[in-house]
Computed example of a mutant assay.
Amino acid sequence: MIQRDDVVICISKSGNTPEIKVLVPLLKNLGSVLVALVSNTKSYLAEQADFVLNATIEEEACPNNLAPTTSTTAHLALGDALAVCLLEAKGFTPEDFARYHPGGSLGKQLYLKVQDIVDSQQIPKVKESASLSEVIVEISSKRLGATAVVDEEDRLKGIITDGDLRRMLQKTLDIGSLCAADIMTVNPKTIPSSEFAIRAMNLMRNHNITQLVAMNGDKIAGFVHIHELMKEGIA
Rank of each mutant, 00 (worst) to 15 (best):
F223Y: 10
N40H: 14
S194H: 04
G217Y: 07
K171E: 13
V7Y: 09
I175T: 13
Q48I: 05
R166H: 02
D96I: 03
K13Q: 14
V7G: 07
L110Y: 01
L203G: 03
G15K: 00
R199P: 04
D174K: 13
C179L: 06
L229E: 01
T210G: 15
Q211Y: 14
L106H: 04
Q121P: 01
V24E: 02
V150Y: 01
D164T: 09
D218S: 11
L37M: 13
E195T: 08
I226H: 05
K113L: 05
E58V: 11
C85D: 05
D6W: 07
T172S: 15
L66Y: 12
L45Y: 04
H227K: 13
N54C: 00
F223W: 04
G222W: 03
V38G: 02
N65V: 03
A83C: 14
A180R: 02
L78N: 10
I136S: 13
G31E: 11
N216A: 12
C10F: 09
T73L: 10
L106Q: 09
E47W: 14
G145L: 07
G79Y: 05
K21T: 08
T70L: 06
V149S: 08
A46I: 04
N64H: 12
T56P: 00
I183Y: 07
L106T: 07
N216K: 14
L76C: 05
V84N: 10
T69Y: 07
F97K: 01
A214C: 11
F92K: 02
Q48C: 09
I117E: 01
G107C: 06
E128C: 11
G31M: 09
A74S: 12
M215G: 03
A130D: 05
S131Q: 10
Q109W: 07
A181V: 13
A81L: 04
I198S: 09
I226K: 03
N54F: 00
G158R: 00
L144T: 12
Q121N: 15
A98M: 08
V22L: 14
P94V: 07
M204T: 07
S141F: 00
T210F: 12
G158V: 07
L87G: 01
K171Q: 13
V24F: 11
V149G: 03
K42S: 13
A77M: 14
S120A: 10
